[in-house]
Amino acid sequence: MNRGALYYLMIPLLLFLCLLQSTAVARLKIAGVKPDLVLLMVVIGALVYGARPGVLWAFVAGIGMDLFSGGPFGASSLALIASALVAGLGHRPFSRFNIFVPLAAIALGTLAYAGVYLTVLAIFEVIGAPVLWVPIGDAIRDIVLPVTLYNMAIMLLLLPILNRLPESQDL
């Protein structure tokens, strides 16, 4: 089966994006938020190849993210796994020139990521081992919604590239 170059490049690409996410991406802040390039790549991977390889890429990418984060180690992995699962739902309907599925996948993927990440922070607080304190309501208004829009905008820009990828593949 011809899986395409992207399949084999996913892990090095994700690790490179983790490095970019903690360096160059900080310069792309708009209204205090930056795009989640790693999340975008995981969602694209899950859309093209399905949730099965997607969750594995999400786990590896999450480890890379948490190396450069002040949050709990493993939290990004869990959050990205949730995003990959959500995006994986769009694997079958995903097709060339379909704008709705990638946009919906990144929007729901971002919400799933934020939901799981904030839940992990809340659990850490409840069990008395807090790492960070983030006010949930403010975080949704000031971070989650703007980032969702930002990620959707980038996905929109990536659509021409996405349309050049092979059709969704069953692995």
Binding site: S22, D36, G71, A114, L132, V134, A139, V147
Partner: peptide, 13 residues
Amino acid sequence: IGEESTNFSDTIL
């Protein structure tokens, strides 16, 4: 040498 990778906290390395 680095900045926070997520949007949920503000840290630098």
